[in-house]
Amino acid sequence: MQSTSLGRVYVWEIPVRLYHWLNALCIVVLCITGYLIGQPLAIQQASEASFSYWFGWVRFIHFVAAYLFLFNFAFRIYWGFAGNKYAGWKNFIIYRRKQLKEIKDVLAVDILQADNKPIETIGHNAMAGFTYFLTFLAFLFQCLTGFGLYAAMSKSWFAQLFAWIVPLMGGDFAVRQWHHAFMWFFILFAIVHVYLVFYHDYVEGRGEISSMGGGWKFIDKEHHPVLKKQDSDKAGPASAANDI
């Protein structure tokens, strides 16, 4: 893998990037406010209730962020059908033998580090795709349980669409407990996710971190059919000197 043979590939389109950062913001806000709702700080003493509303605001922010999160998530599902091939739904459903093999490779190369051969995926590798599929399930679960709890305190028809989840899970108490426990999934995911982004950027040097900013990744031309062809077209005396 030599720097000279790298080409730029536009991987993450604007909607994907916007989704990603909005989602990240929502998750951070939801985790902080959600944790506070579960374990409120007792910062006020000797006061009258009519003087403040901070806990009300914490909950309000949680609910607003939840709506944003839900519709952002819904948009991402839509973009799984409308977006480019790196955003497509096929990245998240593991059903081809090639994907299974790639999962095995990722485990061997990146996680267990038993092997050093480069893994040449451009978008999500199969392991990442599968992990994101699990996070989508967690998103769905948090939306169902969260809005299910919210339905009891909302008059909006939209929240009422989720009211059925409460009897199904045996009451608000169980729903609240699961909703709270799943918050930790997001925290753990964030730790591993952020670490792995740095890891890939560091080890592979393909611009993993900046790709979610500008959308471009740097790919070894050998492994990209179009870039490879462009390269060989331009080849000849001028050589393949289109450094980035």
Binding site: P40, L41, A42, I43, Q44, S47, E48, A49, S50, F51, S52, Y53, W54, F55, G56, V58, R59
Partner: peptide
Amino acid sequence: RPNYDAGLFVN
């Protein structure tokens, strides 16, 4: 309930 919204809790 107003104490809840105001963040006034018994510890």
